[in-house]
């Protein structure tokens, strides 16, 4: 007995794990009755169905031939995710003037073809200015331009 489809196996395992999570964290939800459904009725029924599909997928992975998972690309995924998270972390303390160039440069690292030259730097500056002008000044998105660390260092009117 050996695994014939890794894709089926892993997606099945994932479904089972997620379903178990929904069941566990929903264990205290009131079920109610069929005519007066409580908050737990629909999600818990769905979670059991998901569990069923997960088990089916795992069983099928031993029976039906499938493809391998193929190459994962942990690098671009990790870099893009890190860039977005960094942007979120830097936004309040430092503001867009720092967070946005960081977001652009870190995301660019996800591509092996990115070149770091004067032209690239100009693009980063241009895009940052564009976003500040269009989104913050133009559309009024309340993102700080200079964050809280700049309090007192720059005029308060520059910060928003």
């Amino acid at each position: 007995m050996s695994v014939r489809s890794w894709k089926d196996l892993w997606s099945g395992v994932l479904y089972v794990a997620l379903a178990a999570g929904f069941l566990w964290f929903g264990r205290d939800f009131r079920m109610g009755t069929a005519s007066r459904m409580g908050p737990g009725y629909f999600p818990l029924v769905l979670a059991w169905v998901l569990l069923g599909f997960g088990v089916l997928s795992v069983v099928r992975s031993f029976l039906v031939e499938g493809e391998g998972i193929g190459g994962m690309a942990p690098k671009p995924l990790a870099i893009i995710t890190a860039a977005v998270v960094l942007f979120g972390l830097l936004l309040t303390p430092l503001g867009l003037v720092v967070a946005m160039p960081v977001l652009i440069v870190v995301s660019a690292m996800a591509s092996s073809q990115s070149v770091y030259d004067v032209k690239g730097a100009l693009i980063v500056i241009g895009l940052t200015l564009f976003c500040i002008l269009v989104f913050v000044k133009g559309l009024g998105v309340p993102m700080p331009i200079f964050g809280s660390w700049f309090d007192g260092l720059v005029p308060a009117t520059w910060q928003r």
Partner: peptide, 24 residues
């Protein structure tokens, strides 16, 4: 080239998603 495009897309995604609820 795509290498110029995708960082800009990431930027627009981040700003767009923030501006819906102004939430980090």
């Amino acid at each position: 080239p795509y290498r110029y495009l995708f960082p800009a897309i990431v930027v627009f995604c981040a700003i767009g998603v923030f501006s819906l609820n102004n939430s980090i």
